[in-house]
Design a protein around this nucleic acid. Structure first.
Lengths: 199, 199
DNA sequence: TGGTGTAGTTAACACTGTTAACCAAATTCG
DNA sequence: CGAATTTGGTTAACAGTGTTAACTACACCA
């Protein structure tokens, strides 16, 4: 009954799954091929080499993440709302799509060295969106940060920390997961909102 | 004139250097061995396998990082000072010891899956120190965070983001590096200090 | 009917981590 | 001193890796 996918898509699907289940080190062209009932060399008909295959996986995942965020972080909404939405959706995506999310960050450090620069630019669409949102918030006096670019980068890093601790199940058993997520998000957001201080 | 190191130390030194220069993917036992004028199998006299070699590298680097931080973050100093010091020293270490720092974080995601849990505990000494510092600051009313464990993790993630953007030279050319570092640190710290708000 | 892509194959190369078996020099011990 | 054992390495081999070159069937189209 299951619709037969074109080989190229099969390869991607199998790779993504194997990558998540068995890790990067034990991912081999031959294993992927066997799983697809095909020879290893056939993969080279669709991907220049292993790196390109991985890059494609990253690209796909980043694209999905971007769309997932952009679908809710609409430009017409209030700036602070948009800011919060971006943050919440980012974490939500990571938690709900562990396979895709892990590909973005686990392979990255390794494959990224050989990741072509022009493609890298493309992967930063939602990053740019965050920068823009922060800048808009600043000009409305809702935030006070010295450099939006720096701030945006810090936020990604922080969010990534939150998501990975959950995905890696490194959370202390005494901590409730959803509470951890919500509190952390709150912490990130609060750090950026302007609070009028008494001097 | 150069003092000849024991083979085990030579291997570690060579590995660290090759890892940094050529990346993880192209690090092979045979290459390391050749560089040390020895056969690949000799490495197995000192390390059970490649994973154990990498784990040793991680352990060494984490130990150095811990000591670097602990040397300045003395328990008798003021809590907020200690908090700031930990953060500053972390970033300083990363910037000044890129080879060691990259080993901690670049290999981690890959080798960490097979990293034994009891060793992992050991690598968290300075993490525990940060948690303790935050808890102390809270009980003095200097901070207000819901969960110090979560907060500490968020800080590490954020700091890692800062260090990596500098090390990977992904910094926009218009941004001055030291300004970026100082501003980012300030941003992280400010996010955690209590500001009396007017309601 | 013949030619040209298309989608796959087989065979091979140069490399990888790792193991088993071996060897020679140094050290320990009776 | 001489024998036994440990130390610090070697060579040869295995199974698995990414990748390339050369080949084969098959569909399509003139």
């Amino acid at each position: 009954m299951s619709e037969v996918l074109p080989l190229r898509d099969q390869i991607l699907e199998i790779s993504r799954h194997m990558l998540f289940k068995e890790g990067y080190r034990s991912l081999s062209m031959r294993k992927i091929a066997k799983q697809a009932n095909v020879t290893a060399t056939s993969i080279y008909l669709y991907f220049e080499n292993k790196d390109h295959l991985l890059h494609t996986l990253i690209e796909e995942s980043v694209e999905d993440l971007s769309q997932f965020i952009e679908a809710e972080a609409l430009p017409q909404t209030n700036n602070i709302e948009r800011f919060k939405t971006i943050i919440e959706r980012y974490v939500e995506f990571g938690i709900q799509n562990p396979e895709e999310y892990e590909i973005i960050y686990k392979i990255r450090s390794d494959a990224m060295a050989r990741y072509p620069k022009e493609k890298f630019r493309k992967t930063r669409r939602c990053y740019e969106l965050l920068v823009q949102t922060i800048m808009d918030s600043i000009s409305e006096g809702l935030m006070e940060v010295d450099d939006p670019v720096v701030a945006a980068y810090s936020i990604w890093a922080q969010l990534h920390g939150i998501v990975s601790v959950v995905l890696n199940k490194r959370l202390d058993r005494r901590i409730n997961q959803t509470k951890f997520i919500n509190d952390s998000i709150e912490l990130v957001i609060q750090g950026f909102l302007v609070q009028k201080t008494v001097h």
